[in-house]
Design a protein around this nucleic acid. Structure first.
Length: 279
DNA sequence: CGGCAGGGAGGCC
DNA sequence: GGCCTCCCTGCC
């Protein structure tokens, strides 16, 4: 059954949200997008001010996974510190932060080190099809991202067969640590930002950047400000007075500048860097 | 074919 | 704590 969400007071640009490069949990099929998690499939598509969706298996609420209840107008107000961010926001109105599944987000970002986006997507697809739980609806086969218990059992060699090179070791070790409860999602959610990031960095293959991405895209820390090479270039050029070559200092400067929704600012600057800037 | 890509680990000071 | 080198693989 097709259902819909009225978007008149919830601006959304579905395509930019799912294609800007922040998430590896969604796939495209024609003009529709779908995600598979927790025994369910959610299919969504947008027509103007309406978001249509279909659910198979366990229910997944699009309002939740697309963060449709984030007060975007309020966010924009709080970010409007200068002309440049105002223009970036205006040009990409409706671009939202996603709320992805913790473990799949974590593993995808661990493999993202020194990789390009299409390769990361390919890995997520391959690892899901090979080790994830298959779900069948309407004669179509869908695959969930494998659980930590499952992925921890896969040998490093078999992980390497998915063309992730030296990252295979990180994926295996981190899967084991999550399986064993060395780091727990629910505990992370109760910590403050600095504490949660420190905790995440205990995991193999997780440094400042990966930790910030996981905090922002799956654990609701909207103040996280991940700095990747794209964002770094934009910041160097557009915010030279806040720029610092050290990751931690730079990220903190931007958090101090943009406030509690700094992650949203990061998303708009990232999008600008990848699409509008000739760098 | 050399160089580099959405970083991180491990070794060194 | 800062700096340096290496790391698989794919693609230009």
């Amino acid at each position: 059954m097709t259902e819909k969400v009225d978007l008149t007071d919830k601006p959304l640009d579905l395509r930019k949200t799912l294609e800007c490069g922040q998430t590896f949990s969604w796939r495209k099929n024609g003009d529709k997008y779908y995600t598979v998690r927790n025994g369910g499939v959610l299919k969504v598509w947008q027509e103007g001010d309406e978001l249509f969706y279909e659910n198979y298996g366990n229910e997944i609420d699009p309002r939740e996974v697309l963060r449709l209840d984030d007060p975007l107008e309020e966010v924009y107000q709080s970010l409007g510190k200068d002309d440049f961010i105002e223009r970036s926001v205006l040009a990409n109105r409706g671009l939202r932060i996603v709320r992805d599944d913790f473990f799949s987000c974590l593993i995808a970002y661990i493999t993202s080190a020194q990789m390009q986006i299409p390769r990361i997507r390919r890995f997520v697809r391959d690892v899901s099809e090979k080790y994830g739980k298959p779900l069948r609806f309407n004669g179509e086969e869908y695959y969930e991202f494998p659980k930590p218990e499952k992925l921890a059992e896969v040998s490093e060699e078999d992980l390497r067969d998915l063309s992730i090179g030296y990252r295979a070791e990180y994926v295996k070790r981190t899967s084991e640590m999550v399986r064993d409860g060395t780091v727990e999602e629910e505990k992370l959610r109760k910590m403050d930002y600095a504490e949660a990031r420190k905790e995440l960095k205990k995991l193999s293959g997780v440094g400042n950047k990966v930790a910030d991405c996981v905090l922002l895209f799956s654990l609701d820390f909207t103040e996280a400000f991940p700095v990747d090479t794209w964002v770094r270039k934009v910041l160097k050029e557009k915010y030279p007075e806040l720029y610092d070559k050290k990751y931690k200092k730079l990220s903190e400067n931007m958090q101090d500048y943009f406030g509690n929704y700094a992650g949203y600012a990061q998303e708009y600057l990232f999008y600008y860097g990848r699409t509008c800037m000739d760098l």
